[in-house]
C-alpha cells in the first residue's frame, strides 16, 4: 500500500471495493527495430464503492478498454502496467490481479469478480450447451448437490426472464438479447462483489437494450454488487449508472454523480459531450467540436484536450491538470474550472 497517493473522494456511507491509484498502462512495441510506446492509460485514479454502478465513458481511443484489461488483470504483451496499482477489497495486498497468484485469482473469479462482455460468445462456448457454462463457472463456487444447483440456476434465470429451456440450447440458437441475458445470469449467479461490464448492451437493439439494462439494475440492487460499467453511449450511462467518470486520451477528466454530470458538466469536453447529444423534441442546433482525439503514441503535452479546448490558456499547454474536487463528490481535471472554483 502506498500512502502518498491522493485518495479519490470516498464518502462516509460506503466503503470502496476497488481502488485504482495512479494507474499507468502502456503498450510497448518494437517493430522492425523502432520502439513505440502508446500511453493508453496514463495516471488514472478512482475508487468504486460497494453497491454502486460506476460508469466509465470514453471514445474509441480514450484507453477505457485498456483500463478494463488492467483492472481485470488481462495483461499480455505488448500491454504493460508501468505504474500505479489496482486493488480489490476482496483481494488485498497485491496491487493488481496480474500480480496475484493464479490460485487466488481462480478463487475470486466468478465468486467475487465476474464479467459481462459485449460479445457473449466469449463466455458461452459455441459448441456446448448454455448449461455447461453454468456448471463450469458457477458450480465450483456454489457447491451443494447438482439438483440444488440446478434449482438455483433456474430460479436465477427467472430473474432475467429466461425459461429453463435455454439451458439445453446452444448459444447460436438464442437471440442476441437472450444470449446477453444468459451471460448476465451467469455473471450474477454467484452474487459477486464486483462485476465488470464492458459495453454489455452495445450490440443489442434499442428495445432489448433497455430491457437488459433494467435487468442489470434490478439484479445489482438485489445482490448489492458493485458494477464498473463501461460504454461510450452517454444515453446508457444516463440510464443506469450512479456515478460517472469521463475519460479522454488516457486520463480521467471528470467524475461525479451521473445526474450531476448531466446537470452541471464542468470539464469543457464533458460539456461538449452532454450538449451535443441530440434529443427528441429539442430542435436547437448542436455545435460540433473541432479537431480529433489525439494519437496516444504522440499525445499533446499538458492537458491532452487543450488543442480542441475553447478555454485553453498557456498553462494548459505545459502542465497536466490534476483531478481536483470542484464540488462535493465532483472531481474535474481542468485549470480553467479549478481556478474559477477557487477564485
Amino acid at each position: 500500500m502506498r500512502a502518498n497517493v491522493q485518495q479519490p473522494h470516498a464518502p462516509q456511507d460506503a466503503q470502496p471495493i476497488l481502488w485504482v491509484r495512479d494507474l499507468q498502462a502502456h503498450y510497448r512495441t518494437s517493430h522492425f527495430g523502432v520502439r513505440r510506446g502508446v500511453k493508453a492509460v496514463d495516471g488514472v485514479s478512482f475508487a468504486v464503492r460497494r453497491g454502486e454502478i460506476y460508469g466509465l465513458a470514453g471514445e474509441s481511443s480514450s484507453g477505457k478498454t485498456t483500463l478494463i484489461k488492467s483492472i481485470a488483470g488481462a495483461i499480455r504483451p505488448p500491454l504493460e502496467i508501468v505504474g500505479g496499482s489496482v486493488e480489490f477489497a476482496f483481494l488485498p495486498g497485491y496491487g493488481g490481479l496480474h500480480r496475484a497468484p493464479p490460485v487466488d485469482v481462480a478463487r475470486i473469479r466468478w465468486r467475487h469478480l465476474s464479467y459481462i462482455m459485449q460479445g457473449s460468445m466469449n463466455v458461452l462456448n459455441p459448441v456446448r450447451r448454455v448449461e455447461s457454462a453454468f456448471v463450469d463457472f458457477a458450480y465450483p463456487h456454489i457447491g451443494g448437490s447438482r439438483k440444488q444447483f440446478e434449482q438455483q440456476v433456474v430460479a436465477h434465470l427467472a430473474r432475467v426472464r429466461l425459461d429453463p429451456s435455454v439451458l439445453a440450447a446452444f448459444p447460436h440458437e438464442l437471440s442476441g438479447g437472450m444470449r446477453q441475458r444468459a451471460t448476465l445470469a451467469l455473471a450474477t449467479i454467484c452474487r459477486p462483489d464486483f462485476i465488470i461490464a464492458d459495453e454489455p448492451t452495445t450490440a443489442l437493439d434499442v428495445v432489448v437494450q433497455k430491457e437488459v439494462l433494467g435487468m442489470i439494475r434490478s439484479i445489482q440492487r438485489e445482490t448489492g454488487s458493485s458494477v464498473l460499467f463501461v460504454t461510450h453511449d452517454m444515453g446508457v450511462h444516463a440510464h443506469i449508472t450512479d456515478r460517472l467518470a469521463i475519460m479522454y486520451a488516457g486520463r480521467l477528466v471528470e467524475e461525479a454523480a451521473t445526474a450531476e454530470i448531466f446537470r452541471n458538466p464542468l470539464h469543457p469536453y464533458t460539456r461538449h459531450l452532454i450538449s451535443s447529444l441530440p434529443r427528441i423534441g429539442d430542435d436547437t442546433p448542436r455545435e460540433g467540436l473541432g479537431g480529433s482525439p489525439p494519437n496516444l503514441a504522440d499525445p499533446p503535452p499538458g492537458c491532452r484536450f487543450h488543442p480542441r479546448c475553447p478555454l485553453a490558456t498557456e498553462i494548459c499547454k505545459r502542465e497536466v491538470p490534476a483531478m481536483l474536487e470542484a464540488d462535493t463528490g465532483h472531481r474535474v481535471a481542468c485549470f480553467a474550472v479549478n481556478q474559477g472554483a477557487r477564485a
Binding site: 428495445v207 439494462l213 452517454m234 444515453g235 443506469i240 446537470r263 452541471n264 434529443r279
Partner: peptide, 21 residues
C-alpha cells in the same frame, strides 16, 4: 426505448427503472 439524457430525466430515471423489471 430511447434512453433519455436530459438532466431532469437522469435524476428521475433510476427510480423509474423499476417498472421495467
Amino acid at each position: 426505448a430511447v434512453l433519455l439524457t436530459e438532466a431532469a430525466d437522469v435524476a428521475a430515471g433510476v427510480s423509474g427503472m423499476n417498472d421495467l423489471t
